[in-house]
Amino acid sequence: MSLEKLHIAVLMGGWSNERPVSLMSGEGVAAALEERGHRVTRIDMGRDVAQKLADAAPDVVFNALHGAPGEDGTVQGMMDLMGLAYTHSGLATSVIAIDKELTKQALVPHGVPMPGGRIVASEELYERDPLARPYVLKPVNEGSSVGVAIVTEGGNYGNPIGRDTRGPWQEFAQLLAEPYIRGRELTTAVLGDRALMVTELKPKSGFYDFDSKYTDGMTEHVCPAEIPEEITRACLDLALLCHRLLGCKGCSRTDFRWDDERGLDGLFVLETNTQPGMTPLSLVPEQARHLGIGYADLVEAIIEEALGKDERA
């Protein structure tokens, strides 16, 4: 790829739970762009982010933020008002995709298989289970498996869940309760309008939580996944469908749970991430690399799409 030399602001950090990951993503992106000869301004987002962006006056912003307010539409709306070109998805897409319940409302009517479940007030959990055990509790609008708990029959959360037991119910007023789907963790990246590959994730802890995602050696990545061709094809097709239905730009990553005892009927979409990680352990760069797309080429491809589209979802 031959991208003209640009002034690019790399927006990273912020104050979400995913700040450390964002800083790693942002630094990786910035270093790759500098190696390609671009002028880079690194911006660790604070409350003065608008002023920093105005002062920098970049040609384009690479949004390497993860979590709110960099992935939920807040920063996107600000940059829209400022007239800045930026990578990844726009305001409306970001608002919907970070909210797991809104995502279901957008995708399920179009035939995307997703787990059932409902929003529950955390206070309710101290009185009764919202679903039959085992079930999963997760924040409605957090990423990177932040605050996810699997409630099992013989688990250590109590029955009902104890008020003083450590878990996401102490941190969030509302949670999404979903049936637990046994089986395997799969993920597929989309770049532009192309689904890349399917990776199977095998966490050594048995649960693909925040630490398993971002601690070297805690999760085995099998890329490409050793799964039947029909499951590979379904993951690729569904990831691209989710990307298009949600109106994603640049790259996205759709995560799946697959009950391999049920075949195609056991495949479920969990969520679509509109700003996937770009760290050394991240899945999008890994899948791109397997297809011969180097890290710097991946970064420039995301920027190229940002500069090629004026309208944002």
Rank of each mutant, 00 (worst) to 15 (best):
A234V: 01
L240I: 10
L246E: 08
T254W: 00
A239G: 12
P224T: 05
C235L: 05
A234D: 11
G250A: 12
R253H: 08
A234T: 11
C251N: 12
T232L: 02
S252D: 08
I227M: 06
G250N: 11
P224D: 06
C235T: 02
L245W: 12
G250C: 11
I227K: 03
A225E: 04
L246V: 12
P224Y: 03
H243N: 07
H243E: 04
K249H: 15
P228G: 11
I231Y: 08
S252V: 07
L240H: 08
L245P: 12
E229S: 10
T232G: 01
L236Y: 04
C251W: 06
R233G: 01
A234S: 13
G247A: 13
I231H: 03
A225F: 07
H243S: 07
A234L: 08
S252Q: 09
L238Q: 06
R233L: 06
C235Y: 02
C248I: 03
T232M: 00
E230L: 01
C242T: 09
A234K: 14
C235Q: 04
L241A: 15
H243V: 02
R233C: 03
P224N: 07
C235S: 05
L240D: 05
P228T: 10
T232S: 06
G250S: 11
E230V: 06
L245D: 12
K249E: 15
P228I: 04
T232K: 11
L241G: 06
C235H: 03
A239V: 04
E226K: 15
L236A: 06
C242P: 09
A225I: 05
A239K: 03
G250K: 10
P228E: 10
A234I: 01
P224Q: 07
G247N: 13
L241R: 15
C251M: 15
R253N: 09
L246P: 07
E230W: 00
E229A: 14
T232W: 01
L246T: 12
L238K: 04
C248T: 05
C248H: 07
T232R: 15
G250Q: 09
R253P: 10
K249C: 13
D237H: 11
H243P: 09
L241I: 02
L245S: 13
L240C: 10
L236Q: 09
T254I: 01
